[in-house]
């Protein structure tokens, strides 16, 4: 339960309400390794601790990169950190995206809003090991064009010939020339073989629910659709009981699950 001290190396805004923190450990000799999809508990001194997914490259784990949205006391305290400030880190915790089992398959990554942050490490992995995978598609939906994360990288990915990038927004005004409509609409048009695909999905729960429906409609088995779940977490290590979801603790049995495991619970209210 003792956080490791890290220092803010760089911090910058991604959008109006989202930001990225780059952190370096005070004791670099202890190292840091994580798998794509895992999260850390970030402690803002005197304010509190929150689970935040790691959004950097698993092959270059330092500086540790977290992208998140300012939604309340702790995340706002994190947003206000300046270069050189100290922050407590516990982790990495939780399960990861199935980048290894997905070898030999097409990979479809569907992200909604801030959900692109925990998926970016998986994307880094599959793009670095491009020859291990079949088709790669990234489908990304946000509320409006200005809510889009990692816009420079999105441009680079769109420019690649070895992956398919679909981007859409729920509503657009002004100069947006791209797709408008929910992200699920991109699924029917994306190039992948549903019988040999691993899908990784992260976003608001409603968005994930309809995304899974659309993927299964195309023939992707639910056991090969992976989602990342969110619940209240205090400890991150399966001891405090807050993140219970059906017969599991999301912090240690998740956050990444094959969807078929969750189906019976997701169909009930208030689980």
């Amino acid at each position: 339960m003792t956080p490791r001290p890290f220092r803010v190396k760089r911090t910058y805004a991604e959008t109006d309400d989202t930001f990225t923190l780059e952190l370096e450990p005070e004791r670099p000799e202890e190292g840091f390794a994580f798998a794509a999809g895992q999260f850390n508990m970030l402690y803002a001194y005197g304010v509190g601790e929150v689970p935040i997914s790691i959004s950097g490259d698993p092959l270059k784990p330092l500086p540790l990169i977290h992208t998140t949205r300012s939604v309340g006391l702790v995340t706002e305290a994190l947003r206000r950190l300046k270069k050189g400030d100290l922050i407590g880190v516990r982790g990495p915790f939780g399960t990861s995206w199935p980048v290894i089992p997905a070898r030999g398959s097409d990979v479809v990554i569907v992200a909604g809003g801030i959900g692109l942050a925990p998926l970016r490490p998986a994307l880094y992995h599959v793009l670095r090991n491009r020859e291990d995978y079949g088709q790669i598609a990234l489908l990304y939906g946000t509320r409006t064009p200005s809510d889009m994360l990692f816009t420079k990288e999105l441009e680079q990915w769109r420019g690649r010939f070895d992956m398919d990038v679909g981007i859409t927004v729920d509503r657009a005004t002004g100069s947006w020339r791209g797709n408008v409509g929910v992200v699920t609409r991109l699924i029917s048009r994306a190039p992948f073989d549903p019988h040999n695909t691993v899908a990784m999905v992260c976003g608001p729960e409603i968005m994930m629910r309809y995304t899974v429906m659309e993927l299964t409609k195309r023939g992707v088995p639910e056991s090969r659709v992976f989602v990342s779940m969110e619940r209240n977490m205090k400890c991150g290590i399966g001891l405090c009981g807050h993140c219970q979801f059906g017969p599991s603790f999301i912090c240690k049995d998740g956050p990444v699950y094959p969807h078929d495991v969750l189906t019976p619970w997701l169909r009930r209210w208030e689980i």
């Binding site: 929150v50 949205r69 309340g72 702790v74 706002e76 809003g113 509320r143 608001p204 409603i206």
Partner: peptide, 11 residues
């Protein structure tokens, strides 16, 4: 679904 929630939370 992506909308910022109206109130600020403890997180």
């Amino acid at each position: 679904v992506y909308a910022p929630r109206a109130h600020k939370s403890s997180f």
